[in-house]
Amino acid sequence: MTEEIIIAGFGGQGVLSMGQILCYSGVMQGKEVSWMPSYGPEMRGGTANCTAIISDRQISSPVLNTFDTAIVLNQPSLDKFEAAVKPGGLLIYEENGITRKPERTDINVFSITAYDESVRMNNTKVFNMIVIGGFLKVRPIIELENVIKGLEKVLPERYHHLIPLNKKAIHQGMEIIKERHSLNQA
């Protein structure tokens, strides 16, 4: 198993920490992982992305130009990374703020309304955990218990009381993710 993921969105949406949580969770499950952030002008200008790779085998390149999965959280990221999904791969997008929907028919497309859900949960900070939940529903590559262990590693101890809330957010994400286009329908 190798899952090559690009996560992209606005700075502040928790893009970089999503990648870190997935990687830490992967470590907890005994996988090889690599995480590579954008750290350049694009980050300072508002959009950020990171490449997260989770694999059973040693990882060669930490930098890629095509991906098994793209998780895009805003329109510029969708525009940039839709074409980078491998044929047969997966695209997940946050519906809020998307004006042009994905057009490719050779990939599986899912959408999620994580922002609206986080507002309903009275905590927009769990937005990215809702998205992670959605992703893990479609690609169950890591067990939930290892995601929680990963969170325990990423979050400083003073925030550990928030872990149950994050767990709930993951569950909500699994509930609300919607299939938009699957290869079987095509």
């Binding site: 870190q20 990687c23 470590v27 090889e32 992982v33 690599s34 995480w35 590579m36 952030p37 750290y39 990882i59 930490p62 930098v63």
Partner: peptide, 10 residues
């Protein structure tokens, strides 16, 4: 380099 410096690994 910037890749090795910025990336995270086990």
């Amino acid at each position: 380099d910037g890749i090795i410096g910025q990336m995270m690994e086990k």
